[in-house]
Design a protein around this nucleic acid. Structure first.
Lengths: 125, 125
DNA sequence: CAGTATCCTTTACGATACTG
DNA sequence: CAGTATCGTAAAGGATACTG
């Protein structure tokens, strides 16, 4: 049973769902995790896989994902310096439930776009 | 195959995944959708189901979910005025891939908390 | 009851320059 | 190569008061 009700500040802070979800529902986290699906990637390779994302934001997101245990960060002493990011078992597990959602998003885009057109049309009369 | 790479502004704006995901990965959208799982609810009932969420933010989120075609809004003329929110087939479909993720979040909280403790411990030495 | 209206704070994200 | 530092913008969210 999924418990989503939280009335007190303590309950809100402790709510497992709010707590875990908060760090994987950003703009980039799902894309970063997905980019690592087929194996470890270097920092620059992750960046190329996503295309648009600044170094700064990518670093922030990678650190947050590492902190929550979804990926590991391994430094390969250089020069040149190489840093590899790789999914942990927990990250693989997360990806197994995240992928269907991302896949659904890709598939449902036409339906969503159509719904938006209808809604926006009604607003204008 | 999931295509997440977007290098040009046009590709980023059109990317189905970024586009659809953007409106379902907020702090409240998953919780709101989940609250409607067992049938239509009134505005105030949704609020009680979630516990913490201001009227303003709930309204904003409900409108966005309605616009993207996940829920419908039905006004029952009063007085007293009653407004019901209900999942559409598209919303039910979304929930079918969203629920596993939320469920995973709830189950994985201990693992995530442990990972955070390890990470934060390393930072302090 | 189901919202709006205002105002404010926080967080995420982005652009650019610089560094071990 | 893989970041960090600084600065700035924008979007999300929150608090409170008011209304058809």
């Amino acid at each position: 049973m999924l418990e989503i009700t939280a009335t007190t500040p303590e309950a809100q802070a402790l709510c497992p769902i709010r707590n875990v979800l908060a760090n994987i529902n950003g703009k980039w986290q799902p894309l970063i995790l997905l980019s690592l699906e087929d194996g470890p990637l270097r920092f620059s390779a992750v960046r190329r896989a996503i295309g648009d994302i600044t170094q700064r934001v990518q670093t922030q997101n990678l650190r947050a994902l590492e902190r929550d245990g979804y990926i590991t960060r391994t430094v390969s002493a250089g020069p040149p310096l190489a840093v590899f990011y790789e999914l942990t078992p927990l990250g693989v597990s997360l990806l197994s439930v995240l992928k269907p959602l991302v896949h659904w998003a890709g598939e449902s885009y036409p339906a969503v776009k159509a719904a938006r057109a209808v809604y926006d049309g009604k607003l204008r009369g």
